[in-house]
Design a protein around this nucleic acid. Structure first.
Lengths: 185, 185, 185, 185
DNA sequence: AATGAATGAGACTTCATTCAT
DNA sequence: GATGAATGAAGTCTCATTCAT
């Protein structure tokens, strides 16, 4: 693994565990097994590092989404597979989830970072649009629908993690029913 | 307005606009038109102040909920009125929303603050439980339902604010349909 | 003596003894018997502090010049008294001299500081102009003359100090002859 | 031009433009089109590099002086030619001038560097001594005279450069008159 | 010989907190 | 109770220097 990724992963862990104001760059350096100067060779400021983590996670999500939507099964089943995959991702990478949960609305994340992160979610958009055209999904504002969906995933994961439960299939099924009933025509 | 509230409101605004790490106590003092020492008469530390803001907002929400549920109309209509009231609240007090959106998952907010904030949401809980008993609302994990609902409100408000739209009735209705379809039996 | 002056004097001493790059703000704070933060209450940056020292010295010089030129004796004698007073000043305040010698041409000193420092040397200017009108002093570019004079003072003091001699009257007389012969018509 | 000289010239330029504290070795390396390691092949430390620049300039000056004094014309005319040559040198190599003006009294320049730089100014010394013996130049402390002369050159150049004028012959003549009147018997 | 990524000591500066007024 | 100058620990960031290539 290269230095840059080492730093991103170490920083993600510390930042989510302790919060920005309680995570000095020196602690990140130690956790990443580098000198402090090395971090600054890759990221000009602490805020730039945090923005880079944001994009790193977004890119992993995109990767995942792409794969989950490859199949050629029914639209509903592709939707379920994508939704489930997203949840699994956040359970597999709890630090990524914790980071996004904390920094999603932080003023540290710049608009340009947000924009860059939002690009490339096209496959999901297409899926929903297709569903609307086929009369399967409610014919409402696309953007509203997408944000609604994203929000339910985050909320679900936060709740399951927070309540100390496992992410078992029964819970996921319950959630899928909730969400599908919401958006289906 | 007393000094304590002055401080809370000024801090809320600055913290959401700039983030914790970019909001010194001196800036809060200046914005609240007090001396820095005065803040420390009310709040022992910066973190305590932030926790106090959290509770201040939670208490306003509770207040609101109580009022919205007073009526004796149908369960569905009481649910709609409560849901709509919550959304209105966040649009009326955008800084409260921004604060909650940012600090909801922050490690700065202590468990005891979270617990204190969650208490007194009994009226909502009762409403949902009643709906389940009446066979109107899905008979699933109550906690899951409550978190789901809370999450959809937050996500909706964040989206409308973020996209620069007004919170017009059409959008709210769309959202209510989405949410009601999700939870109704 | 107030804190601000304490800091200026301590900084002047350390900066001239060790050079900018070898004088951390922490050392200045210790020498001035203050906390490091206190320095920053008065001077926004290290460079601003250095510029403030420059002006502090310039103002002392102006003060001195004013007094030395008060008398109503002959022009030559007023010139001698002013010139001698300047030399005495630099011997009385060796750190002021060392500072000016080092920072006079430093890029740290901003143009606006230089301008502010140059203002108020009017009395000297008048003296020289008067001498030119009276046909006592060479009728050449006034500015050239003033800089020439200032330079000879600095060079003289640097030399005497550097060679470890005392500033005895014989040396000063020698210097006065040199300078007067230079500028007299 | 060899690497060593490249480095010296680049460093001279940056140091005078920005000051020591604002000129990192990395910037010098970039400006000299070398790697940072290369600089350390030639100069053990940054301070050693600065001292080397000092000597590099001093050596150029010596070179120049030697040539200017070669002629066998009158003493006064040789003095004028030497003095003029020195001024021309500083105008031809403005960075050399700026460097000397700034570092002449800096604690970075070690005593041994100063000593090495002062050696080999013998030809000038001889010239002045000869003048004193011939009763043409004031019979005062030789050292005082030499420093006086050096100082007037520096001051003159600084003034002309600072005031944005050209170094035209009229100004030089004015200056020569000033200086010659000062030192002549 | 030349390079420049890596390093970490230490620089400048901030800011939570105190306390004398 | 209100204040804000003073403090210094601790933060972010720089940069002289090294060393493996």
């Amino acid at each position: 693994m290269d230095k840059k990724e080492q730093i991103i992963l170490a920083a993600m862990r510390l930042l989510t565990e302790r919060g920005v104001q309680a995570t000095p760059m020196s602690a990140i350096a130690k956790a990443a097994n580098t000198g402090m100067g090395t971090i600054y060779n890759y990221f000009a400021t602490k805020e730039e590092l945090i923005n880079a983590i944001y994009l790193y996670i977004k890119r992993s999500e995109i990767h995942l989404v792409a794969k989950a939507l490859e199949s050629d099964s029914s639209l509903k089943s592709r939707f379920f597979s994508f939704y489930t995959a997203f949840i699994s991702f956040y359970f597999k990478y709890p630090e990524s989830f914790a980071f996004m949960d904390q920094f999603h609305s932080s003023p540290i994340i710049t608009q340009s970072t947000r924009d860059a992160g939002q690009a490339d979610f096209m496959p999901v958009i297409s899926l929903i649009q297709q569903g609307q055209q086929d009369g399967i999904i409610k014919n409402m504002d696309l953007d509203a629908l997408l944000h609604f969906l994203a929000g339910t995933i985050t909320t679900y994961v936060r709740w399951v993690k927070g309540s100390g439960k496992d992410n078992d299939q029964a819970l996921v099924d319950q959630q899928l029913r909730l969400v599908w009933d919401a958006i289906k025509e």
